[in-house]
Nucleic acid binder design. Structure first.
Lengths: 361, 361
DNA sequence: TCCTTCCAGTAAAACGTTTTTCTATTTACA
DNA sequence: TGTAAATAGAAAAACGTTTTACTGGAAGGA
């Protein structure tokens, strides 16, 4: 493996000149540039990123912390991040909290641990999805804030899926509130009078945001709302959607629309209704949230809100690299709120068009 | 940020001793060990992995090349790899060929490029899924073989999903042939007389393996086989499964069982049959392959072959670390063939039990 | 013309570790 | 007891770059 020294010798210049040519860090005469480039090519020289990082303090590596890489969201997000990182010549280190298989305290611990692991491994920036709520949240947030805004040596970071601009952290997230409005409004426009909701776990911030959006819409439009009976809770699995739908139907026999907190629960709900031989969308209309891959293949295909997953990853990476390149932590945190789109399929509209293959809008 | 020097000073020892304590690379008296550990803790010292890698030539990082991180397989595989890497204190750099959105020549180029990128970034080992066939394959394989078996400085690597032991490359893969036998045998045992097959693209090695397994079973058991009419080809999407099922049914109106090359196509096939009001499993039984998440939520739930995705990732990582730690490239390549399991759901058996939530067997 | 400024290019320092080499004891054995 | 071997620990070299400090010659101004 040939090093910069061999290149310098072969080109008949000093190693500093080779470095300057490679990094364009100083003017070098065209003549020498040519000689260096020739030598580099002939020796098939590649800079050793480790040695390079040693002095320059840049590892050309970013870290990404996901909650569960097997979830419907994260693979797309990773793909988006990856594509930008690739363009920029950065490596992506992935870390997974594996939140769904742990209690929330453990998840908090793991999330923090991963953060510190990435910091210790000298990544140039971090994109993370934080699911932390309740108990340890405030303390953890204070810690994050310090890391992001530390005067000497802040680590560039971007929060995904959650707005943390109040902590001074760049954030790329979804306009949940508005998206929910779209979903519920769609049901209303389809003629639903009694719209129920299958909500996610109360410990999850996004679940609460969505439930709030649902309640607000109903209130604002003077639609019937009984928080006891018309909202059932699940845990984002299809099994829980099944049970929740059962509960809703027992509480409100004449329910005619359900907004589900995610597609998986919606699919569970669909299954229950089909077992009961209830006509969808005739008698009850169902809409989900996320536009997971499954949603288009179930029967009937599920109406939902399409979240721009890949785009979110790309935007987050873009924002991160901007901050890395600026090397400044003095600017205000930027917040990017992504719009989403209503996808109408047969679970709400009998004559919905068939295919919505928007690969990410 | 304090370095090893500060620790040494604080503990009143040389930096060599600190290094020896940290890496357990030499005997150090308990007395000094204690002093060093105390200093490390007080200064909250963390070794700089970059500086460390500089001298030791180990980056404590492995690379993983997937074909499409958004596929049904790879997130689980990544999770498996990650869990082992975590235990071992390694970082995982992920690279995605994004094969499904490119032609196969471009994919070959991308796959090679990623390999070289990882090599250039000095990873300690590589786990990869190669989809390369046809044209450039031989040349590429020769290159891989050279990298894996280079006398001075081989890079430890493991092939996932594909047996490349003949190239001297450790491999973790699935016993496709046998798995297919299980699937077709199940149909036969359920009473199917005319079993068709929806195959994947002929360019894909795994698709051919599965088709061959299907043909062999039928031949061996003297069942009817008309390669023209009873095999239809798709491209692993559910849309293609839909079309292929249509084709099969037109060619062989009295078909009573179909083995599909993957679950997605099976789901497309299900959809077509339901549209035609054909009773499943009464009139036609369908079985897929992969046990993707979707398979359990469609109607009827799909019988399939459960592939141990997470386990595959874990095994691959384990094998890789063994080779990394042995630092030898002289041993024979190890091949690990993973067994799979038949999952019987309602698409083949009316009274199948409901839940098969084996989180990875 | 002389002195200063500028600049391309080089030599050398620096980065923070690990590893090798060396030294001063201690241990072992005759 | 004396010499050789073993060993804990320290000093210093090394890793392959980037960056800083320096050099010598050209350019520019007076």
């Amino acid at each position: 493996m040939s090093g910069i020294k061999e290149v310098a010798t072969k080109a008949g210049v000093s190693i500093a000149t080779v470095s300057n040519v490679l990094n364009k860090s100083k003017y070098v005469s065209p003549e020498l540039v040519k000689r260096v480039e020739k030598a580099v090519k002939e020796l098939n020289y590649k800079v050793d990123p480790i040695a390079s990082g040693m002095k320059s303090k840049r590892s050309k590596t970013i870290g990404v912390i996901t909650q569960d890489i097997c979830g419907v969201f994260y693979p797309y997000i990773m793909k988006g991040i990856n594509s930008i990182a690739d363009e920029k010549g950065y490596q992506v280190i992935m870390c997974d909290v594996d939140g769904s298989s742990h209690s929330s305290e453990i998840a908090l611990g793991r999330e923090r641990a991963l953060f510190h692991k990435l910091l210790a491994s000298r990544v140039d920036g971090i994109i993370f999805v934080s699911a932390i709520t309740g108990e340890g949240q405030d303390e953890y947030f204070a810690e994050l804030k310090k890391m992001a805004r530390n005067k000497n040596g802040a680590i560039p970071m971007v929060s995904l899926e959650r707005d943390l601009t109040m902590l001074g952290i760049d954030s790329v997230y979804f306009d949940s509130y508005n998206n929910v409005q779209k979903a519920v409004e769609h049901l209303a426009k389809c003629g639903c009078k009694k719209v129920g909701h299958i909500a996610g776990p109360v410990e999850l911030q996004i679940a609460n945001e969505r439930r709030k959006g649902y309640e607000d819409y109903l209130k604002l439009h003077a639609m019937e709302l009984d928080e006891e009976k018309m909202i059932a809770y699940g845990d984002y699995t299809h099994q829980s959607g099944y049970t929740a739908m059962k509960e809703l139907l027992e509480n409100v026999p004449d329910i005619d629309g359900v907004f589900c907190g995610n597609d998986q629960m919606a699919i569970g709900a669909l299954r229950y209704l089909k077992e009961k031989n209830i006509d969808i969308p005739g008698q009850i209309k169902i809409i989900g949230y996320d536009d997971a891959f499954v949603s288009s293949v179930v029967e009937p295909p599920l109406s939902t809100i399409h979240i721009q997953k890949k785009t979110a990853g790309r935007r987050a990476a873009t924002v991160l690299f901007e901050r890395i390149e600026r090397e400044g932590n003095d600017e205000m945190a930027v917040g990017i709120k992504l719009e989403s789109r209503l996808i109408v399929r047969k679970s709400t509209k009998e004559d919905a068009k068939e295919d919505w293959d928007l690969s990410d809008w």
